[in-house]
Design a binder for these strands. Structure first.
Length: 581
DNA sequence: GGGCTTCCTG
DNA sequence: CAGGAAGCCC
């Protein structure tokens, strides 16, 4: 092959080759086939049909209402005021911040906004909030009570005696503990001062307690244990009470949960979404979504055409940095790659968490990452900056058991957050953006398959198609921009242009489609982006841009490079773990 | 004529 | 990102 790339991995060569050979070739990608499918019956709006006299009007109104819902939900989902301090700024704002700025939204009165957590307009929020507050209050009382028990045991003079121990957490609803405990601190004010001081020092220097008599130490241990258990129990109880409520409450409750857990435990939110690791609220959730990866990407058209080793080999577990001639290329900068890789694995993605790995072989349950060769050195994982890592609110790659889709609404408390069954919401938009990494030209039927919680009608379909059109627009604009910049920078060989995870172009794209970097951009997207960039470069440097329709051939090439979207995207609840962060 | 896309605009 | 116009394709 005359145009072997220097930086491109073998599959990228194939990709490039494909771009050349497949322009007028068969376009038998899965999505294209789907695109010719007739719409499924459930795609019709249930309440209206084209035969209804007012159908168009209804649909129009519905569309407007849908858009208003989108705005409202965008406002309501805006995480900044709701989860203060739970994530770095910008980590989870994603696309939401732009929503309120919509100008053309019509301000129809919205009557069916199912999930509005706004404090003023939602009675369920008030109701749930009050209850949570009450229980939090009780929780605090219990804590106080238990702390005082500890204090009594900790004060050296009293160490030998120890207070009468009342088992905590048995009945958080009753006021017994509170009442029973109150006398201790309140009636012994003189002791309280010392106790308070000691408590402070205990918190700050726990090791000082080691000087206590052994009996007291043992007692302390028991108390600590009980304290921990009681707190956990109480937290669980609160959450249980909160989360057994009807689904319509879940939005607010989810937020309450996020704020509640870190507060009550006094722990900061771990970067990997530690809050979710907590009580049984999410037990089912995490069971279901654990460690996505390896979910079959189905029949990748690209893989079929390429028949390259890349798609039939085990997933990459790259631990070696790229040793190629990177430094010679202004467009490729490698930094933090290895660290990020490690971090990503620590965060739970593991070696299989690359979307780009698509073949069914990847589903092999037993893997030995350490023994796997680093096949594609430059296609490494993870964002380009530490900031990108820090801003990861939650693990993006979550696994769902293939057969568990039907059980989702039952086991996943947050699954209904975005299920409105009518309009598109920010969650859908986020999901669509992520899907863009795999498919630039999804057909409407493909979209229907991947958004099972959307009631597709003419409006929602065209809106979602419009989304992808807008995605493409931005994508191609960036490509052209960077191609021209490369030309003006004196680049002459298109092979010099490689889109890597730390390149500026990728940064721009990632910011647009994956703000917060809470999703692992698949390697295949980098390859497509590289190809697109090179195609633009070639066209512009050949002066083809004088032709008004000079981009069309490029569009045609790129449109044939759609890959199958991972199955997990078919879950209506998939992107929510991202949004919740 | 409908579906889809790009282009332009706000 | 949405609205709308224009164009292409089946």
């Amino acid at each position: 092959m005359a145009r072997n790339p220097i930086l491109l991995s073998p599959q990228s060569q194939a990709c490039s080759h494909l771009a050349e050979c497949d322009v007028e070739g068969e376009s038998s990608s899965f999505s294209r086939q789907l695109g010719r499918d007739s719409s499924p019956p459930w795609a019709q709006a249930p309440s209206s049909s084209p035969t209804d006299p007012g159908w168009f009007g209804d649909e129009h109104i519905e569309m407007k209402r849908a858009r208003v819902e989108t705005i409202v939900q965008g406002i309501c989902l805006s995480p900044s005021p709701l989860v203060p301090g739970s994530a770095p700024a910008g980590a989870s704002t994603c696309y939401l911040e732009k929503v309120p700025e919509r100008k053309r939204k019509q301000s129809h009165p919205v009557q069916q906004v199912p999930l509005q957590p706004g404090p003023a307009q939602n009675w369920t929020n008030r109701k749930g909030g009050t209850r949570v507050r009450e229980q939090l209050h009780q929780l605090k009382q219990q804590l106080k009570c238990l702390q005082e028990h500890i204090l009594q045991a900790a004060v050296p003079q009293d160490a030998a005696q120890g207070p009468e121990y009342v088992e905590p957490g048995k009945d958080p609803q009753s006021g017994k503990h509170r009442n029973g405990c109150r006398p201790h601190p309140r009636t012994a004010n003189s002791d309280l001062g010392g106790a308070e001081k000691y408590r402070v020092s205990e918190v700050q220097h726990p090791s000082e307690l080691r000087s206590l008599p052994s009996g007291a130490q043992a007692f302390l241990e028991v108390l600590k244990k009980e304290l921990t258990g009681a707190v956990s129990q109480a937290v669980d109880l609160v959450l249980q009470n909160v989360l057994v409520d009807p689904p319509s409450h879940l939005t607010q409750q989810g937020r309450s949960f996020q704020a509640l857990v870190p507060e009550s435990r006094g722990e900061p939110l771990p970067p990997g979404g530690g809050a979710w690791k907590d009580p049984h609220v999410l037990a089912a959730f995490s069971r279901r979504v654990q460690s996505q990866a390896g979910i079959s990407l189905g029949n990748s058209s690209l893989a079929k055409v390429l028949d390259s080793p890349r798609y039939s080999l085990s997933p990459r577990s790259i631990s070696k940095p790229y040793h190629g001639p990177t430094a010679n290329y202004p467009w490729t900068v490698h930094s933090h790659i290895q660290e990020n890789q490690t971090l990503s694995q620590l965060l739970g993605q593991g070696p299989t968490g690359r979307w780009s790995s698509g073949p069914p072989q990847d589903l092999a349950p037993q893997r030995h990452p350490a023994s796997e060769p680093a096949l594609h050195p430059w296609v490494l994982s993870q964002p380009f900056t530490e900031a990108g890592l820090e801003s990861r609110p939650l693990l993006p790659l979550v696994k769902m058991e293939p057969g568990s889709l039907q059980a989702v609404p039952d086991v996943l408390p947050f699954s209904s957050v975005h299920i409105s069954f009518t309009s598109l919401n920010p969650g859908h938009l986020k999901k669509a953006k992520l899907m863009f990494f795999f498919a630039r030209y999804p057909s409407s039927s493909l979209l229907k398959a991947y958004f099972p919680d959307v009631q597709f009608n003419r409006c929602t379909t065209s809106q979602m198609i419009k989304w992808f059109s807008n995605f493409r627009e931005y994508y191609y604009i960036q490509m052209e921009k960077f191609a021209r910049q490369a030309i003006s920078d004196g680049v002459t060989n298109p092979k010099m242009l490689v889109v890597l995870r730390d390149s500026e172009l990728f940064r721009a794209l990632n910011t647009h489609y994956n703000k917060g970097s809470d999703f692992e951009v698949p390697d295949c997207f980098l390859e497509i982006a590289t190809l697109t960039l090179q195609e633009f470069f070639r066209a512009v440097s050949a002066g083809k841009d004088s032709d008004p329709s000079w981009k069309k051939p490029i569009y045609k090439i790129i449109s044939k490079l759609d890959r199958d979207i991972p199955e997990i995207f078919k879950s209506s609840s998939y992107p929510q773990e991202l949004l919740q962060g």
